[in-house]
Amino acid sequence: MKRFFLICASFLFLLFTPLFSAEAPVRIVFLGDSLTAGLGVEPQEAYPSVIQEMLNEKQISHIILTNGSISGSTSASAASRLKWFLRAKPDILVLALGANDGLRGLSMDEMYKNLDNAIVLARQNHIRVILAGMEIPPNYGPDYSNAFREVFKSLARKYDLEFIPFLLEGVAGNPSLNQADGIHPNAKGHRVIAAHILPFILEK
């Protein structure tokens, strides 16, 4: 009888475990550049903040987002910056770096290496990684554009990561969703990005 009750209790515990764990805080860190930092828009208009707002609307309050993005940063800083955020014990890392590497014409091998190091560090610390892919403007030439695109794809394949093929899907090149510089999304553009990213986060 005692054994039966023990089994029942264990069953009930297992049954409700997802419920309990869903209420435990989930920390997500966004490691990105100006596109994620929200250059040119108010901090609360940047897409990580918009995602937080959307989660709140869905009454999902246990997900805590931290925007650790720095305008102008390249993939070279990815690992060292992640080390800083390890103190916050994140559960998920949204890695959205690489755009500046491409715009500055930096070596794709180096970019691969830098992102790889950050992913390895995240995995060593049991952090799940969502990799945000980027596209380089066509004026950089087809060879470089393809090589750039392939870096993200091959990393996603290598580590079997949750992969967002293009962070600026539906936003890039659309003047009504971008600022006057033609490259940074405006507030409306950030809302589109947030809506695009949210399912990946909910899935994780």
């Binding site: 596209e135 066509p138 490259i183």
Partner: peptide, 10 residues
């Protein structure tokens, strides 16, 4: 050159 097309940063 084909470098100037939709999405090019010019």
């Amino acid at each position: 050159t084909g470098l100037i097309k939709f999405g090019s940063r010019v």
